[in-house]
Amino acid sequence: MAANDDELITLIARCAIRDQQAIKTLFELVSPYLNSVAYRILRCNDASSDVLQEAFFQIWTNAASYRPHLAKPLTWMASIARYRALDRLDHEKRRQEKFVSDGEEHELEWELGNNEPEQQMASQQLKFYLHKCLVTLGDNIKHSIELAYLQGYSREEIAEKFNTNTNTVKSWLHRGAERLRLCLEATLNS
C-alpha cells in the first residue's frame, strides 16, 4: 500500500465533506489491503466483495467522526472491514471447511510494507515488538490470537483446533491480553 498516514487522513476528511473523488482514491489505495483482510476471514470472493462495499460505505458515512489522534487511518479502516467481515461470518455461520482449507491457511506474514521508508521502519518496529511479546505468551495463546485476529476463528473453533474447551480458550485470551499489554507497554516505554 503506497499511501502514507497524512494522505489517508486528508482523503477521509474530504469524504467527510462529501468529496466523491476522495472515496474513489481511497478505494484505489486501500481496497486491495482491506479486501485481503476480509478475504482471509471469509475465504470467499463474493462475500469479501460484499463486505468491502459495506466497509467503504461505512467509511464514507462515518468519515466525519474519524479522529486521527485516536486511531491511525489504516487501523480505523481495517477495523471497519474486519468487523463487517465478522458480522458476515456470524450471519452465514459457514466455517466447517476452514481447517481443511485449500492449503491457504496462511503462514503469518511479517514482511515489510510498501509505504514510505520512515513509516515502514516504524511499522516494522511495531511488528517486531508485537511478535517479541507474543512469543512470551506460549505457543497455544500466541497461535489462538493469530487464528482469531487474522482468520476469524471463534472461541469454539479455537477450542476444537486445540482439542480443549471454550472456557480454557477464554482464559488463554484474557491471560494473553493481560500479559501482552504489560509486555507491549514495557517494551514501548523502554
Binding site: S31, P32, Y33, E111, L112, G113, I145, L150
Partner: peptide
C-alpha cells in the same frame, strides 16, 4: 497493536 499482526502490504484486488 493487533493490526501489526497483519501485513499491510498484502493485497488482493477486489
Amino acid at each position: 497493536q493487533l493490526i501489526n499482526l497483519s501485513d499491510t502490504a498484502s493485497a488482493r484486488n477486489p
